[in-house]
Structures are given as structure tokens and as C-alpha cells.
């Protein structure tokens, strides 16, 4: 009876207890690594905040209109603050991965291995989207100002069209980098973009044929309503 009880109840408990005892040092190491990572991350954040301020990163970024773009996205913090935070969180993430590895659990190790192999793709994709966002805003505004100065009434639409086209292109590139529906994404982008251009061409051809004729006649015959003002 005692043997049966021992086999049914006590042995599993003992086994579990021994496993826990085996696991505890790993857990402790893992927690220590995480704690150390947290401290290093905070120290790096402070160090990089000072460094970025010393090299005037905020002023340089203002030159390229980055804070303005971030403000539009609802981010009011300066670029130096954002970059320092990013370094902090990246350090913490690295230490989290090391600490998970220190747990010595096979399943976690396999998952981490896959994650590590995929991670560079995620970073590249994020970088592509970030750069695409900045470039799309810049080119969109360039197109908007140029079309306003040319007196085009559809300036707003032209600016947005350029902005979204560049941004969607960057998203398509990022998805391709992540390996998500490689051909599908590119094909659908091509179809949508081609469709929009074709739709605009048909709309202009059918709906705006008179306007197009008038415009071309004015250009060819020089009947544009220009004034004689000499600005310089």
C-alpha cells in the first residue's frame, strides 16, 4: 500500500521538486541577466541621450523635417529621445532573449533559433517602412508645393497621390522582405497602381476631353492668360 502511494503520489512530486530544484538556478540566472540587462539599457539610454544632444541630433533632424513628420504621426518627443528609447528597448530585448536562452528549455531554444533567423528581416522591413514614410511625406509635400505654385487646382490630390504611392511602394517592399506573399503583393500593387492610372486616363479622356482640348489649344496657340508682370 505504501509503495503504491509512493509511486502514485510521492514520486511525481519528488520528480517535480527535483526538476524545480534543477530549474531554479537557470531561472535565477535568467532573472539576473534580465535585471542586468535592464540596468545596462537604462545606462545606455542616459548615455546616448547626452551623446545625441552633444552632436545636436535634434537640430540636424529638424533640417530634414523629421520631427514634423513624427508630430503628424502623433509623436511629440524629440528625435534624440526617441532614438535613446529605441536603444534602451533594443538592449532590453537582447537581454530578454539571452535570459530566455538561459532557462535551458528546449522548446524555447528552438523558438528563439527561428526568431533569430527571422529577426534581420523584421528590422530591414521596419527600416524600409520608416524610410518610406519619411520619403513619402517629403515627396508628397514637394509635389504639393510645386503644383500649388503651378496654379493646379488639384494640388491637394496630386500631393496625396504622390505621398500614398511612395508609401504603398515601401510597404510592398517591406512585405516582400518579410516573405509574405512575395509575388502576390507585387502583382496586386502593380494591378492597383496600373488600375488607378488607367482609371484617371479614362476619366480625363471621357470626362475632361473638352478641358484637354482647350488646354492644348491654349498651349499651342499661346492663348494662356498670362500677365506681363516682370518680377525681377
Amino acid at each position: 500500500m505504501n509503495d503504491a502511494l509512493q509511486k502514485i503520489f510521492l514520486d511525481p512530486f519528488r520528480g517535480f521538486f527535483e526538476n524545480v530544484l534543477d530549474f531554479l538556478p537557470h531561472l535565477l540566472t535568467s532573472l539576473l541577466i534580465l535585471l542586468l540587462g535592464g540596468l545596462i539599457a537604462l545606462a545606455l539610454e542616459k548615455m546616448f541621450t547626452k551623446l545625441f544632444r552633444a552632436v545636436n541630433l535634434d537640430r540636424v533632424s529638424e533640417k530634414y523635417g523629421i520631427p514634423e513628420i513624427l508630430r503628424r504621426g502623433g509623436i511629440k518627443e524629440p528625435v534624440s529621445f526617441i532614438f535613446s528609447k529605441m536603444i534602451c528597448w533594443l538592449t532590453l530585448l537582447i537581454f530578454l532573449i539571452i535570459s530566455l536562452n538561459a532557462l535551458n528549455v528546449t522548446t524555447v531554444e528552438r523558438l528563439l533559433e527561428k526568431f533569430f533567423l527571422y529577426l534581420p528581416n523584421v528590422f530591414v522591413a521596419l527600416f524600409i517602412v520608416f524610410m518610406g514614410y519619411i520619403l513619402s511625406n517629403f515627396l508628397g509635400r514637394t509635389a504639393l508645393i510645386a503644383s500649388v505654385n503651378a496654379g493646379l487646382k488639384m494640388s491637394g490630390i496630386i500631393g496625396k497621390f504622390v505621398q500614398f504611392t511612395v508609401f504603398f511602394l515601401s510597404i510592398a517592399m517591406a512585405l516582400e522582405q518579410l516573405g509574405i506573399g512575395k509575388e502576390t503583393v507585387l502583382l496586386s500593387f502593380g494591378i492597383i497602381y496600373g488600375g488607378v492610372v488607367l482609371a484617371l486616363a479614362i476619366a480625363f479622356g471621357l470626362g475632361g476631353s473638352n478641358a484637354a482640348r482647350e488646354y492644348l489649344e491654349k498651349r499651342i496657340k499661346g492663348e494662356d492668360e498670362k500677365d506681363d508682370i516682370q518680377h525681377l
Binding site: R59, E62, K63, Y64, E68, F138, R141, T142
Partner: peptide, 9 residues
């Protein structure tokens, strides 16, 4: 002067 936004824009 304050380089608030892109100069050309």
C-alpha cells in the same frame, strides 16, 4: 534661420 522645415519647401 531656425531650420524648422526643409529649406526648399
Amino acid at each position: 534661420h531656425g531650420k524648422k522645415i526643409n529649406r526648399e519647401h
